[in-house]
């Protein structure tokens, strides 16, 4: 199978270029396996990867124009030649490795931790199974970045728009019956940029390898804001 891989080494290249590799496909081969094969052919090829089972979120790449997690993408589903590029809109460090600093900053900016004003009970804070169910589809995010780096609004304003990942996380805490900082969280999200750059383009939903729906989460935040404002 033919792979076209984006290559860039800042020490020798002035701009990225595509390099062709031939990979022998085996049964059940994932894109990560193919990239590892490329690395066997050329040890100077760099990409991030670790767990190989879609939970660590290291190996997000752009494949034939769509952001995917390489380790859970069967090569049999891909159209040949397979074009593999780094995430769009992020500064390239080398080959498929991009600088995700702004993505992480946006995550940190939504105060992604549980805030509790009441004194802690001796045992667990009680939560009904129904309330716990509200976190399903939110807490499973693996911070791979597929969503935010496929979001045009994040491309245009990565320093000010939180992006789908961070907003999903924001809603994960707003939706948690144990969290007691709803007003502060909503106030923080006000203004034209942090939340309201989302134009429901829904690329994030298309690409999420965990099947999560950041657009819906963003909608929930807007509705809650509206409800609290009137």
């Amino acid at each position: 199978m033919k792979f076209l891989i984006s290559r860039f080494n800042p020490e020798t290249d002035s701009k990225p270029y595509m390099q062709a590799f031939e990979v022998e496909v085996t049964r059940g081969m994932m894109l990560r396996d193919a990239l590892l094969d490329v690395k066997r052919q050329d040890e100077s090829f760099a990409f991030r990867h670790s767990c190989g089972e879609g939970v660590c979120g290291s190996d997000g790449v752009n494949v034939n124009g769509v952001n995917k997690l390489a380790c859970v993408t069967p090569v049999s589903e891909l159209k040949e030649p397979v074009e593999v590029r780094p995430f769009p809109g992020r500064p390239i460090i080398r080959d498929l490795v991009v600088d995700m600093t702004q993505f992480y900053q946006q995550y940190k900016a939504v105060k992604p931790w549980l805030v509790r004003e009441d004194p802690m009970p001796e045992q667990e804070i009680l939560q009904s199974p129904e309330d716990r169910d509200k976190l399903d589809g939110l807490y499973e995010c693996i911070l791979c970045g597929c969503c935010s780096t496929s979001c045009p609004s994040f491309w245009w304003n990565p320093e000010k728009f939180h992006g789908p990942q961070a907003l999903l996380t924001a809603w994960r805490f707003l939706a948690d019956s144990r969290d007691q900082a709803t007003d502060e969280r909503l106030d923080e999200l006000e203004g034209p940029y942090k939340l309201f750059r989302c134009h429901t383009i829904m690329n994030c939903v298309e690409v999420c390898p965990k099947g999560l729906n950041p657009t819906q989460a963003i909608g929930h935040i807007k509705n809650l804001m509206l409800k609290n404002a009137v």
Binding site: W113, L114, R116, E122, E124, I125, S128, P129, R132, F173
Partner: peptide, 20 residues
Amino acid sequence: TVYELEHNGVPFSRLDNGKI
């Protein structure tokens, strides 16, 4: 240790009585 984790926000699955 588990109670501390829960207080820190770990979304444990729950029983009908609200416990972990």
